[in-house]
Design a protein around this nucleic acid. Sequence first.
RNA 1: GGAGAGGUGGCAGAGUGGCCGAUUGCGGCGGUCUUGAAAACCGCUAAGCCGAAAGGCUUCGAGGGUUCGAAUCCCUCCCUCUCCGCCA
Length: 426
Amino acid sequence: MIDLKILREQPERLRAAIEAKGFDCDLDAVLAADRARRESLREVEDLRARQKAANAEMAALLKGSDAFKAKVTEMKNLSAGLKEKEAALRETEATWQRLALSVPNIPHESVPVASDPSGNQVVSTWGEEYKACPYSRPHYEIPWLEEMIDFARGVKVTGAGFPFYRGDGARLVRALVQFFLREAGRHGYEEVYPPLLVNEGSATATGQLPDKEGQMYETVADSLYLIPTAEVPVTNFFRDEILPEASLPRKVSAFTPCFRREAGSYGKDVRGLNRLHQFDKVELVKWVHPSQSYAELESLREEAENLVRQLKLPYRVLLMCTGDLGFTQTKKYDIEVWAAGQQRWLEVSSCSNFEAFQARRARTRFRDADGHVEPLHTLNGSGLAVPRILAALLENNLREDGAVNVPEVLRPWFERETIGSPAAVT
RNA sequence: GGAGAGGUGGCAGAGUGGCCGAUUGCGGCGGUCUUGAAAACCGCUAAGCCGAAAGGCUUCGAGGGUUCGAAUCCCUCCCUCUCCGCCA
């Protein structure tokens, strides 16, 4: 939800934001709905005030008296009028709410304005992009891959995009998750294991609803949604709560599977592990004081980068342009690792600031020392998403003999130095 | 899943048609007293919306309804607790 003050006082700022993000949103309709709602509200409140005043009078009157009866007759009329106005108000409120939820968040001034990904800025790179060599290949062409990641059986059991991880593959997933969570703990994040299904209110607060229903799996009988990211349940942890200012920043990490329908992206990057309907991710979420959110975005990005560096994967950081910003975000960094086999970059983390956009929808606020209550700022970032990391590890660490080196930092959980040695191939 | 009991302010807990945004207690904040503290006493102690302000309105799980008037009566839904059944 955008700040209503900005909507009313600086609509041009919003118009520019909508334009820069490339969203379709009729701001004039929103403004008209806002005016209609306020007018309608005034009418209703005026009548209710008169009704309440009459109530007090009637309470003092003798029940059966003529004066009382006269009042009842008078108030019957008023009540009928009020009922009509209330019905009208319900309608204007519903329209207003639907429209207000359609206004996207405003990009931060430091975000480059551009309509397509060519406007994204590479802000840093780490490690070297390996050139393709005679034995390098995309992970989905490694001969023994199906031993570790069984796509065919996943298709049989569920459908495309739901692989089985087996043996070393399953263990590698677990090792990565353990590593990510341990690092998050070291950075002061409280580990949380959230529900994997959320209700409509939660999905609305974080911005998945309305409009993006198509991206989430929905349960038929209970109107619950499978989470597309832990961001949804975790950000809603403090929904409808007021936090003491002294408790900020709050930092939570969460490992969960994520479920995405990816409607409309069939045929795009769908090979192997590049794009799945179910994948594992550790998500980092922060609730911070508004004055700190951009500093917190930088530290979040740094924490995510640190994970990739420890895995010794070459990566680059992109500052996303306005056209690549989501509906809810004001500023976003993507971290992409280099996958030597495919000779391309794979996005493994997305670190975003939402300012008060989600907090307003979720009614998560903080109270300062003077007792003032205001929405806080929320941020989140992947730390990290598993399958593409796995893909990059397989491709970058593939040796001439066909085995893959396992990064040093995963040893506490993986316990071996290589996987997929030629001997394992059958 | 079946039967029953409930959902009221930070917490506990009154309130069964009007003067109830709501008695009271606890907790929290401020003050008096005290060398300091405790105790005692006094005061304050919800959020949202509308409004330039004065002020007004909303909210007693959610949504409808009855009524001149609903925390209170009716309906639907959600949730919690107890018992039974089932079950990882």
